[in-house]
Simulated assay, not measured.
Amino acid sequence: MGMPAEDDDPITGRKAASPDFDTQHFKRTLSQFATGVTVITTRAAGHPYANGAPFVGITASSFNSVSLDPPLVLWSMANRANSLPMFRDGTHYIINVLCASQMDLCQRFASLKGDRFAGVDYRLSETGLPILANALAWFECHNRSRYDEGDHVIFVGEVERCGLQDCGGQPLVFQGGQFSTVSPLDR
């Protein structure tokens, strides 16, 4: 018995079946899962896409917890993103969890043009990275590991510091192609 091919399951030796759907159907189906919205920030100086700006930030909804001990979180970024080298090469980043009232920041950091930090209120973390004012929560992460998977890179961050901020308590949520927030259900 030979070694399994690179894309074979290491336990069973079998490949995954080809998908029976197209990309648009997959995206529509994924959109039914409600996710929180974050802005992830890091240092940009010295990279060609930074245009002289000291920081870069992106909007991401792929944030998730991984482990409590050690404290690990993950998020992912498309391989084609201009700012990928800055996140891949950096030692730290901040994950800012947005409040429902921060829709403007969500749209600003999702845009590909201009200085995304112009006029944005933030303070610097212990590693000198932007923590957005009035974000619901923030996580300062060491860039522990990166995994190339499909058309994205998965980042695993080891949380060194985190905090809560009072913005009214309602998170910005994305589901079904629309932004909303959450409300407790009656029991």
Rank of each mutant, 00 (worst) to 15 (best):
C106S: 15
R80Y: 07
T42A: 14
G119R: 01
R116E: 10
D9L: 13
Q165S: 06
H47Y: 14
S101D: 09
D89C: 06
D22Y: 08
G13F: 09
D8E: 11
P184M: 10
A137W: 08
Y93A: 05
V66P: 01
L98I: 01
E6H: 13
N79H: 12
F117G: 02
T59R: 09
G46E: 12
R116T: 02
L105I: 07
S31N: 11
N79D: 09
V120R: 12
M3C: 05
S65M: 04
F174H: 10
R43P: 00
F33T: 04
V37Q: 07
P4C: 07
A50K: 07
R187P: 07
H47Q: 04
H92I: 01
D69V: 09
C167P: 00
I154D: 05
G163Y: 10
D115P: 00
N64S: 13
E140S: 06
P70N: 14
L98F: 03
F21P: 00
G90S: 15
C162G: 02
V153H: 08
L164P: 00
Y147E: 03
I11V: 03
G46M: 09
A44K: 05
A50L: 11
A44F: 11
V66R: 06
V173A: 09
H47K: 05
G13L: 08
V153F: 04
I154W: 09
E6L: 13
L136I: 06
H92A: 05
Q175R: 15
S62V: 09
K15R: 15
Q32A: 07
G177C: 12
N96C: 08
R146Q: 15
F117K: 07
L172T: 06
A5G: 10
H25R: 15
L30K: 06
R144Y: 14
D69K: 14
V156A: 14
L185F: 08
D186Y: 02
